[in-house]
Design a protein around this nucleic acid. Structure first.
Lengths: 228, 228
DNA sequence: CGTTAGTTCATACGTTCGTTTGAATCATAG
DNA sequence: CTATGATTCAAACGAACGTATGAACTAACG
């Protein structure tokens, strides 16, 4: 067993693939781009990962395994503190989406690069990627959904599921295009680093998500008027 | 000038491309798939559109030109009815996002196929696509943003822009994955046609968007508690 | 030391990609 | 009818794709 410098080539490939998949998508990134950026031989990907598909899965597994565990940790802590009483919706939303967004400040977990990759991949067309992500996400997502059911006993479960879906969409889009707000506005954002951007995004997104989650149910079609 | 049957081959290509781009993405769809599905010769795309990129742009332009006009029509009608007074946020949100979603029921405008394509493409990695969409969208989007500024004079414009972005994300995700709610839940949705799905989606999304838009501003980090 | 197992390397395989070409086909105008 | 210009067609182009191969290299073990 030689094991020259274990995890050196592998990690370099994963880092390069993460960056390139984020920038150009799965189909738009070639093995030659990846191995060139990682400064390893072309055959290294197939040697270490078997195929491009397996590489893609490993890129996500490396980050999502930690995210899943962290989310469960946070949820357990919240439930322990609540001592049997239902959690507040704001706690649940922050536990699920806040934990995700705070990943963007942690360079050891992929930082903004992975965050943006994940946001984009949730609407990725490739069949196997969506299937893989659904499988990786299902368990923890169900735990948080259950907690939302408990926190909002008067809201039909189906409505909560819809709104969870909407929250996921707003979050995915927000992290996928953070530095391309130009798509929706020409409002100039000062060029600062990703962490600062996250600091401004997080509280705003949280209040938006909570506002949407707690909006009046669409029974008779907005009888209340506008308000503000 | 011969002009055999004008717009027959062209339309068939556009229809096939729309379907395939929706299902497999831009990079994941080949010219041979497109021409095969459209039952036209391989060279027909380059003859009629010049390149794959130009075809993609034409696929969107065919639908977005109408959407932009319709959105402006709706906005003008609302403003005429209001006679100078600011519009209600619910009117603006319905004018912008409701008009988009109702496109999904209109088979002549691409129906759900184009709607899902558009939702996915908003997070598409390809550079030229985002640039093109931003250009096509900018003008009308700015009009609606201006109207939101007027409707919510006490809310800082920057906050409105952020929330407009969040609303766009929730909408894009909702229409991109309508029949793949499984990503976030195993809740079974009965298999019905796209229009029925839209009927259930539209009021729910609208109330969510309005709830998010009118949520309390994130000043001191959610001092109000949860409520429901 | 030599052996061995793990890793890297240059190179090539077969396929598919977007695009181009020039001849064949078609409908109309003169 | 022939002539004309737009369209369709089969075929091919070079380039890039993901993957496979077998030899070279490296470091620890017996």
């Amino acid at each position: 067993m030689a094991e020259t410098r274990p995890g050196d080539t592998r990690e370099r490939i994963l880092d390069a693939a993460e960056r390139l998949f984020m920038a150009h998508g799965y189909e738009g990134t070639s093995m030659r781009q990846i191995t060139s950026e990682a400064q390893v031989n072309l055959a290294a990907v197939n040697y270490h990962f078997g195929s491009k598909e397996s590489l893609m899965q490993e890129v996500f597994r490396r980050r999502l395994d930690w995210l899943n565990e962290e989310r469960l940790r946070v949820l357990r802590a919240l439930k322990a503190e609540a001592e049997g009483r239902p959690l507040k919706p704001s706690q649940i939303v922050d536990g699920f989406f806040g934990t995700l967004l705070r990943m963007g400040s942690d360079e050891r977990r992929g930082g903004m690069t992975f965050l943006r990759l994940l946001g984009r991949t949730l609407t990725e067309p490739s069949e196997f990627i969506r299937a893989f992500l659904a499988h990786e996400y299902q368990e923890v997502t169900d735990c948080y959904k259950e907690e939302l059911f408990r926190a909002l006993p008067d809201v039909p479960k189906a409505e909560i599921v819809w709104r969870f879906h909407f929250m996921l969409g707003a979050t995915a889009f927000a992290i996928a295009g953070t530095d391309e707000l130009r798509l929706v506005t020409d409002w100039q954002i000062e060029a600062d680093d990703a962490t600062d951007r996250l600091d401004r995004l997080l509280p705003r997104l949280m209040s938006f998500l909570l506002g949407g989650l707690r909006a009046p149910l669409p029974q008779f079609r907005d009888a209340a008027g506008d308000g503000r």
